[in-house]
Design a protein around this nucleic acid. Structure first.
Lengths: 108, 108
DNA sequence: CAGGATCCGCAAAGATACTG
DNA sequence: CAGTATCTTTGCGGATCCTG
């Protein structure tokens, strides 16, 4: 209900990027500039179109990504980071690096 | 099921810190060194004890925090960041700063 | 190609009460 | 103080099929 009640800054940020795939999507856009719907689908092997659509829409309505529609046939839609989204770049890279460092100590 | 299948580093990290309150808890421990159960409860006004316990236990079993039990009466338990948890410090601070910068542009 | 429409399951979280 | 025990809820994401 009070999603935007967002007491503290950390909670505020989590509410923006806290979806199951949102950070991965943002990371994709951070490293590829522009991605199309089915490109993202391929990067996220287990995601369903419905879920991908929802995550993208939420990111868009939170102002983190841009959705560029080309009125052609077949349809073409390009997703990219907004300026606000780009301000997450350094965090995204650190999250990736942290994962790289600790993913190895984790087997078994 | 395949929580630890964790394809990419970003997803791996998200699986570790992706709980609704986990980053806030980690941030508390990053800025206060040590926190007790009810102290954390006060910082997270809406959390229930059951949920707090679970988030703490998951963070502990993922090796991000330490749980120090003092066998006294009344009981005393202190939570703190492990070395692995401390390696998240810079990310936690950046997340807070990002929230501080963008929480203002967000009203209405 | 980029989704929309439906239906559904389940894990995550909330509410409330109780305890060593 | 630091939890546990139950029960209930919710809402995210999955599965499947359909379409401009």
């Amino acid at each position: 209900m009070d999603k935007q009640h967002s007491q503290c800054p950390v909670e505020f940020t989590v509410n923006m990027v806290g979806g199951k795939y949102k950070l991965v999507i943002l990371y994709q856009l951070a490293t590829h500039e522009v991605r199309r719907f089915n490109e993202l689908r391929r990067e996220l092997p287990n995601i369903t179109p419905r879920t991908l659509t929802r995550q993208l829409r939420e990111l868009e309505s939170d102002g983190l990504i841009n959705r560029q529609v080309y009125p052609e046939i077949p349809p073409k839609v390009e997703y990219s980071l907004s300026e606000t989204g780009k301000s997450l770049n350094s965090i995204l890279l650190q999250i990736e690096n942290w994962g790289l460092k600790h993913i190895v100590n984790k087997p078994k």
